[in-house]
Simulated assay, not measured.
Amino acid sequence: MSGQTTLRLGDTAPDFTQESTEGSINFHQWIGDNWCVLFSHPKDFTPVCTTELGEVARLKPEFEKRHCKVIGLSVDPLEDHLSWLGDIEATQGQRLNFPLLADRDRKVSDLYGMIHPNASDTLTVRTVFVIDPDKKIRLMITYPASTGRNFEEILRAIDSLQLTDKHKVATPVNWKAGDKCIIVPSLSNEEAAKLFPDGWDEQRPYLRVVEQPEKT
């Protein structure tokens, strides 16, 4: 526990160099000017992880539409990762098409606080970090080892982050791309009128519902 870093939203994602199924990766250089999803797996050759990696590989075109790279991690050695790839393709019908970090020395796991000793002192939990092109951590989700993640939700969250970065809106409960949004409370009606000339539905002074602006 002592070697782990406590990360918060808005922190710079720690840089590292580590081996992967696609060669040595210098993290910040690899991200470039893209968004990034970094997500950890408890262990190779485990059932839930196998389904997750297949799903992320299947969804890679959706991440690419959002200018977002994906990269996985587990604390198993590279040779285990490479052996596992055949099982993923055979059972999920999808070849792995993104790098999987081999964090045998736990360097990255400790930097990102991915090992929770009260859950397991040897395995990483199912952590997700969404990192923006400025290398800032914008979202963190942590699941227990037994619960597979919903990567459609992670795509939805990226849509929200990218939209709200560009416009003075927030996204309400269960929002999906194309749904109505909420004008941020810090914006006065006078300021809002300039940005949203078609008007809005003022359900309360602090709850002003507006059509989604164009993301780009």
Rank of each mutant, 00 (worst) to 15 (best):
P117M: 04
L111D: 11
I183C: 07
D198M: 13
C68H: 04
D165M: 05
T6F: 06
H28C: 01
S160C: 04
V48D: 00
H67E: 14
L59R: 03
Q92E: 15
R156P: 03
T127S: 15
G10M: 09
A102W: 02
F27I: 08
V37L: 12
C49I: 09
V75K: 00
C68K: 08
V75N: 07
Y206F: 15
L163K: 03
V70S: 01
R106P: 00
D201H: 11
G32E: 13
H28W: 12
W175E: 09
W30D: 09
G3C: 04
S146T: 15
S83K: 14
D132T: 05
T46Q: 06
V75P: 00
H67R: 15
V210M: 05
T164Y: 03
T6W: 02
T91L: 14
V210Q: 05
R156W: 08
W200C: 05
G93A: 11
K180Q: 14
G86T: 12
S109I: 01
S146P: 01
L123M: 14
R204Y: 13
C68F: 04
A157R: 12
S160I: 03
E202F: 00
C36P: 02
A192Q: 04
Q4D: 13
P42E: 06
T6D: 07
E214Q: 12
D132Q: 03
G178E: 05
F63E: 07
P172I: 11
M140C: 02
P117V: 06
L53D: 01
G72R: 01
V70Q: 02
L123K: 04
N97C: 12
E55Y: 05
P133A: 11
K107P: 00
D87W: 00
E52C: 03
L207D: 12
S40G: 03
P144L: 12
A90T: 12
V184C: 06
